[in-house]
Amino acid sequence: MKLLNYLIVTLLTVLAASGCKKDNYDPPSAMLSGRLQYQGAEIHLEYNQVPYQVYQFGFGKTGSVSNTSFEQDGSYSLLLFNGEYKLIVPNGQGPFLWKKTAAGNPDTITVRMNGSQALNLEVTPYYMIRNAQLSVAAGKVNGVFNIEKIITDANARDIERVNLYINKSAFVSGAGNYNIASAGKTGAEITDPANVALSATIPVLVPAQSYVYARIGLKVSGVEDMIFSPVVKLSL
């Protein structure tokens, strides 16, 4: 009987010792990172609203291996295992056009991970907000910018509206808790796209702080996501 006990203990020890190797992988360590751009210019987005998907084939299940979205400055990063992946932005997402196949599906980018790599994603936005100048004067944030229409072919779309958003934190967009004040113009009110001005009154800040964040957003009609200018921190 004692012998049996020893045997069991020994067996368990061996099992325990060998088990750790068997079912634990190293965490993914290859970093894929980059940003959205158009001809080298940054594309800024609303936080957590424009998703991208990374697929890896051959593991039985379908579906994206990641469910993540771009940061508000248009950047992204992912930790992956080495291997081959495919990356897309799904149809109808983002204020831009993603390359498409002849069948109208989003064209995939093949990504071979072998250690970390940087990969910028080239897309064609409907519009670009250029030369956004934001300043504070007399309790207001004033924004001046021009709008460049990029897509002019059959896919062209109109401007629904432009907005200037102000927030206390660096997250600035039209979502309810991402702005404390905003000013807007509809597309029809924009007479000269080369010179658009917006002005929003800064409300009382509770608790008080000596700075606000602001940026300009442009909504393309029929497209859910807005395109933005970079977030600017303004001292009061």
Binding site: K61, S64, Q93
Partner: peptide, 18 residues
């Protein structure tokens, strides 16, 4: 759900979702 689509690849995804 992705599991539903894994079990039956003929099921198309909904539009405008990531």
């Amino acid at each position: 759900d992705d599991n539903i689509r894994s079990n039956n690849p003929k099921i198309l995804k909904q539009p405008n979702q990531d």
